[in-house]
Structures are given as structure tokens and as C-alpha cells.
Computed example of a mutant assay.
Amino acid sequence: MYQQLILEHAKARSGSDLTPAEAAAMPDQAGVGQCHQLNPVCGDEITLRLELEAAGMQPTVKGVHWHGEGCAISMASASILSELSEGASPAELEEMIGHFRELMRSRGRMEPDEEILGDAAALAGVAKYPARVKCAMLAWVAAEDALRQAVSTSR
């Protein structure tokens, strides 16, 4: 379950540059959304901020920044999501989140689509452990809500 990629992302966390003070303040900017998620079962938590930028006709994800504490799975998942999201359109990110959710709900019966999920495919084994699925999903649920907010304020 703890593949090398997961361990590397858990240690060197991409996007984990949101300070606790920034995480406590809700952004009041167009094209920015923020969400806090907590797993009450294990205590993992994350505050994730997603920023869109106008790029021609279609906005793209400028960055995903987060602050969190938790197990290697939740922190690696947030790190991988942060890397994968950059440059994606809102529709592409929604597809990625939907595919990741479906994978996590499959209880290990579904093969990950690496073209859609990239490095997040390394988390596929987590789906076999229902108690750990929430850990892997924490950042993705936060990103889904933050994306919704960012899109609604960018119009």
C-alpha cells in the first residue's frame, strides 16, 4: 500500500505552502476557493485553497495550496493532487476528481486510468482498505468544493 511514490510525496509535499494564518482566513478574491476538511475518525485534516487564472476563453488551475496534518496517505494524496491540478481546466479537474472517487469506491476492483490520474494511480491500493479511503479522498473532496467556489466567483 505504501509505495515509494506515496512515501516520497508524504515527505516532500507539493503545494503544502499555505500557512496556518492563511488557512484560517477565507480568501475574498475572484477565482479563488478554499475548503477545510476533517476526518473525525483519525484526525487527519486539510485546508485547501485553489486558484484559477483566466487563460483565453477557458480558465485553468493556477495552483492548489494547502495546509494539513495527517497520515502518509492523506498528505501524499494532497501533494499528488496539487501537482496534477496545475494547468488543468475546471472540467478536466472535475473529471479527475470523479475518476479518483470512483476508483476509491471500487474496493480494489477497478484499475486506475493513469492517463487521467497520473501519479494518483499509485493510491489505487488504498481502495482495498475502506477505513483508509477517507484519508486518500480528503484533499480531493476539499478540491472539489474549492473548485466550485473558484468557478462561481470567477464569472
Rank of each mutant, 00 (worst) to 15 (best):
M1I: 05
Q4H: 13
L5Y: 14
L5D: 13
I6N: 02
I6Y: 06
I6H: 05
I6L: 09
L7D: 14
E8I: 10
H9S: 09
H9Y: 14
A10F: 15
K11L: 14
K11T: 14
A12S: 14
A12Y: 15
G15W: 07
D17T: 03
L18W: 11
L18V: 00
T19Q: 02
A23P: 12
A23W: 12
A23V: 11
A25G: 12
M26Q: 15
M26I: 08
D28H: 15
D28Y: 12
A30V: 12
G31Q: 06
V32I: 01
V32N: 05
Q34C: 05
Q34T: 07
C35R: 11
C35V: 02
H36R: 14
Q37H: 10
Q37G: 09
N39C: 00
N39L: 01
G43W: 09
G43E: 09
G43V: 05
G43Y: 10
D44A: 03
I46H: 07
L48P: 01
R49F: 04
R49K: 08
E51S: 14
L52S: 02
E53F: 01
A54K: 15
A54D: 14
A55K: 13
A55Y: 00
G56Y: 15
Q58E: 15
K62P: 04
K62E: 09
H65M: 04
W66Y: 15
W66V: 00
H67K: 12
E69W: 13
E69R: 15
G70H: 06
S77Q: 08
S79P: 04
I80N: 08
I80T: 12
L81S: 10
L81F: 11
S82E: 07
S85P: 04
S85V: 03
E86A: 12
E86N: 04
S89P: 05
P90F: 06
A91H: 11
E92I: 03
E92G: 07
E92A: 12
E95C: 10
E95R: 15
H99G: 13
F100P: 00
R101A: 15
E102D: 13
M104N: 06
M104Y: 09
R105Q: 11
S106V: 01
S106E: 03
R107N: 06
R107E: 06
R107Y: 09
R109N: 12
R109T: 14
M110L: 13
M110I: 01
M110W: 05
M110D: 01
M110P: 00
E111R: 05
E111H: 06
P112R: 03
D113R: 04
E114G: 07
E115V: 02
I116K: 11
I116C: 10
L117N: 08
G118V: 04
D119H: 13
D119M: 00
A120D: 01
A121L: 00
A122D: 11
A122P: 05
A124E: 05
A124N: 08
A124I: 01
G125F: 00
Y129T: 01
Y129V: 04
P130C: 01
A131D: 02
A131I: 01
V133A: 07
V133N: 06
C135W: 05
A139P: 06
A139L: 06
W140S: 05
V141M: 10
A143G: 09
A146V: 00
L147C: 07
L147A: 09
A150G: 01
V151P: 14
S154T: 12
R155Y: 11
